Amino acid sequence: MSATRPLHLAVALDGPAQYDAAYYVGLARLAERGALDFVTLGDSFARPGLDALAVLSRVAPVTERIGLVPTVTTTHTEPFHVSTAVATLDWVSRGRAGWQVDVSTTETEARLFGRRPAAPADAVWREAADVADVAARLWDSWEDDAEIRDISTGRFIDRAKLHHVDFEGGTFSVRGPSIVPRSPQGHPVTVVDGTGEPGREAAARHADVVLVRAGAPDQASALRDDIRRRAEAHGRDPDTLRVLVSLVVDLGESESAQEPGLDSGPQLAGGGPHYSGGPVDLAELITRWHGQAAVDGFHLAPIAPHRDLERIVNGTVALLQHRSLFRTFYPGGSLREHLGLARPANQYALAGGTT
């Protein structure tokens, strides 16, 4: 990766549970003001709070360009419902949706559903990869011009352009087609945390954006290279992947003269590298890592979302923009355009319409 390759920046809206949609709307609009690629909103069956996908569906109509990426747990849920929900978010956001694939491994969470016991991480990540696979097939099960809407003949759909996916996985099967037409992006953007081994293999097979946790540029570069090699082994073009370092940030401290460091902030749930300091030093860290071709960008997780996001946008991002290292406006309207990713061709149309 050359140092002139575009820098990608995203931010997490996580924090203490909030039950007011206006809170998330305000944060997303602030991130949009900084022209960030996307926001994420975490979710799991083990935490109290609102459903992340539903919250970002509320945020979608009152934002214009920012990408919206909720966490969606694929364990214990129905793949057909997952795919239609994410496609719906892509429609209501006019092509700005993604989803961060996650899994559930605890018996407590399994008992919430009562369908099956908890399974090891490698098993549920294999299932998650199957879910990502069948979701892409369901998104393609309508060709782009399958809708006719011909009032004179009463024909709404060209049935020759609807396709059965006939997927058989290790824990589920799906026939299809979807009930939602192919969405504006074709495939909403798939995000996977590829730091751990089971997730990394799923990311190499199916992710558009891979999140990694790394404490130094050489560690990030090694993770990125490994993910790209695995993707290529699966027949993918590694240049269609974007690898972002996930970094917990605490911008409550003043600027310091010392080298911007990691692991200096408070120890938060989930671990991972931390940055504690000011917005200028954070801009220096981002510039250095990206300049060393270690990463495609950063996924920043503020410990105090409103305070730190404001400092990220008005301080860190403004400085990066001043240095011409980050864009000052959105050149396109979709999340794929923000990330420099092409709209995928429909696999069934390419195969000649085989059902």
Rank of each mutant, 00 (worst) to 15 (best):
M1I: 08
A3P: 05
T4M: 14
P6M: 04
L9M: 02
L9R: 00
V11P: 02
A12L: 08
L13D: 00
D14G: 02
A21Y: 14
A22V: 06
A31L: 01
T40F: 01
L41T: 03
G42F: 00
S44W: 03
A46R: 13
G49H: 01
G49V: 10
L50I: 01
A54P: 00
P61G: 02
I66K: 00
G67V: 03
T73Q: 14
T77F: 13
E78P: 06
P79R: 05
P79N: 07
S83L: 03
A85S: 15
A85T: 10
V86K: 05
A87L: 06
L89H: 04
V92S: 02
R94V: 09
G98Q: 02
V101F: 00
T108Q: 15
E109F: 05
E109A: 15
R111A: 11
G114A: 07
R116G: 11
D122E: 14
A123Y: 08
V124G: 10
A129E: 15
D130W: 04
V131L: 10
V131G: 04
D133Y: 01
V134D: 03
R137L: 15
L138S: 11
W142I: 07
D144Q: 11
D145N: 09
D145I: 03
I148Q: 14
R149C: 08
R155C: 12
I157S: 06
K161C: 02
F172L: 07
F172H: 09
S178M: 03
S183N: 06
P184V: 06
V189A: 01
V189P: 01
V191T: 05
V192H: 07
E201P: 00
A202Q: 03
A202H: 04
A204L: 08
H206W: 09
H206N: 14
H206I: 06
A207H: 06
D208R: 03
V210H: 09
A214N: 05
G215T: 15
A222Q: 10
R224T: 15
H234G: 09
G235K: 08
G235W: 01
D237I: 01
V243N: 04
V243R: 03
S246L: 12
E255K: 05
E255T: 07
E259M: 11
E259R: 11
P260E: 04
P260K: 06
L268C: 09
L268S: 10
G271Y: 10
G271D: 11
P273Q: 03
Y275C: 02
Y275I: 04
V280S: 13
D281N: 15
D281F: 00
L282S: 05
H290D: 06
Q292E: 15
G297H: 02
A301Y: 07
P302A: 12
D308Y: 15
I312V: 14
N314K: 13
L320M: 11
F326Y: 11
Y330W: 02
G333P: 00
E337W: 05
E337H: 10
H338C: 03
H338M: 01
A342L: 13
A345K: 12
Y348L: 11
Y348W: 12
G352L: 07
